[in-house]
């Protein structure tokens, strides 16, 4: 998959990597079990510190999206197994996201339309890949 990182953005690079890999899995741009570059390879290709990539990979590993093997390197897991308290955490994050929408004047209809479009996008691109 293609990672697009904005070097002048306020969002930290490790977070951009994390978010894009998760979206990549959802869209099917990254297949289940697909190998990923090593921390060093990715850091050299982007031109950033190894620690930054390592931070992103550790977050992805903790959240169950990727796994790392000393011999085989990193790869996307074969099946994402949700953490026991996943729904609880997800609901909290969604709450914050909805709150910012409400504060900024987003209506229920607009929110529903947006979510449906994003999910349709995931499905469509997932089918293409």
């Amino acid at each position: 998959m293609l990672l697009e990182l904005k070097m002048t953005s306020d969002i930290p690079i490790y977070q951009q990597i994390y978010e894009q890999i998760v979206i990549g899995i959802a869209k099917g741009q990254l297949q289940m079990g697909e190998p990923l570059p090593t921390v060093r390879q990715l850091a050299e290709d982007i031109g950033i510190n190894v620690m930054t990539v390592s931070k992103a990979y550790n977050l992805l590993k903790n959240d169950g999206y990727i796994e790392t093997d000393r011999r085989l390197g990193s790869r996307v897991v074969d099946k994402v197994i949700s953490r026991p308290n996943f729904q609880e955490i997800y609901q909290k994050e969604l709450e914050l996201l909805l709150a910012t929408g409400v504060v900024n004047g987003l209506t229920k209809e607009q929110f529903t339309a947006m979510t449906q479009k994003i999910i349709a996008d995931f499905k469509e691109q997932g089918a293409d890949n």
């Binding site: 998959m1 293609l2 990672l3 697009e4 990182l5 904005k6 070097m7 002048t8 953005s9 990254l30 697909e34 190998p35 990923l36 570059p37 390879q41 990715l42 290709d45 982007i46 031109g47």
Partner: peptide, 15 residues
């Protein structure tokens, strides 16, 4: 003029 750096994960593996 944002600097965008692009990396292809597959390409990176077979550099």
């Amino acid at each position: 003029n944002d600097t965008i750096l692009r990396v292809d994960t597959k390409l990176s593996i077979e550099r």
